[in-house]
Amino acid sequence: MSFKTSSLRDQFLISMPHMHDAHFEHTVTYICDHSEYGAMGIVINRPLDLRLDALLKHLDTDDGLQVKDNRQIYAGGPVQEERGFVLHRAQDSPWLATYQVSDEICLTTSIDILEAIAAGKSTPDALIALGYAGWGAGQLEREISDNAWLSCPATLDILFKLPAEQRLQAAASTLGINLDLLTAQAGHA
């Protein structure tokens, strides 16, 4: 018997405290796409020891670019860690490669947005990540049924305004959950 699962697109995935996968332990992931073919998301609370100026230098971008916004780069997940992704508020500026996740959030993979952010000509509400999290068909659903993840609606404040170290608990709090009090063990009366 098969059933249709609802999409987790534009949701946060919260790793359960008992998850011991080095890539996802203590993470919150923004889901950009989810269908019967699989899911794709960006981990939003793993800052790297890398800033935008160093990334642009590595990419050999415009040497004359003056970096006014030298923001933190994040580890977006274990897949294609050399590829850049920018989660940002939807806006009028047309970037070369943008996917609209929701009415409020887009995912862009072209370098033009990185240059605009660095120059201070783009939305301050943007998160730059290297790599992404990916799941094959049915894999994420199995992991959720195995109690590896919780999900909740994504909020712009958690995504863009909170410091990285506060995002996991803030996402869990939207469900009324304190992750420090959860256990993988079932209780018995």
Rank of each mutant, 00 (worst) to 15 (best):
residue 13 L to M: 06
residue 14 I to N: 07
residue 16 M to D: 09
residue 17 P to D: 06
residue 19 M to G: 00
residue 23 H to C: 12
residue 42 I to V: 09
residue 43 V to G: 05
residue 45 N to P: 01
residue 48 L to G: 00
residue 56 L to Q: 06
residue 56 L to R: 00
residue 57 K to Y: 03
residue 58 H to P: 00
residue 64 G to C: 08
residue 66 Q to T: 10
residue 66 Q to S: 13
residue 67 V to G: 02
residue 73 I to G: 06
residue 73 I to A: 00
residue 75 A to S: 12
residue 76 G to S: 03
residue 78 P to V: 08
residue 82 E to I: 02
residue 82 E to V: 03
residue 82 E to L: 07
residue 90 A to F: 05
residue 91 Q to T: 11
residue 94 P to S: 06
residue 96 L to S: 03
residue 99 Y to F: 13
residue 101 V to N: 08
residue 102 S to K: 08
residue 104 E to I: 03
residue 110 S to Q: 14
residue 111 I to C: 10
residue 112 D to G: 06
residue 113 I to F: 02
residue 115 E to S: 09
residue 117 I to P: 08
residue 119 A to R: 03
residue 122 S to L: 09
residue 123 T to S: 15
residue 125 D to R: 12
residue 127 L to S: 00
residue 128 I to K: 01
residue 133 A to D: 12
residue 133 A to H: 04
residue 135 W to I: 06
residue 139 Q to E: 14
residue 142 R to S: 15
residue 143 E to N: 05
residue 144 I to L: 15
residue 148 A to C: 09
residue 149 W to T: 07
residue 153 P to W: 01
residue 153 P to C: 08
residue 153 P to L: 13
residue 154 A to W: 08
residue 160 F to D: 08
residue 160 F to W: 08
residue 164 A to V: 02
residue 164 A to D: 05
residue 165 E to M: 09
residue 167 R to M: 03
residue 169 Q to G: 11
residue 170 A to D: 01
residue 170 A to M: 05
residue 177 I to N: 06
residue 184 A to E: 02
residue 189 A to I: 09
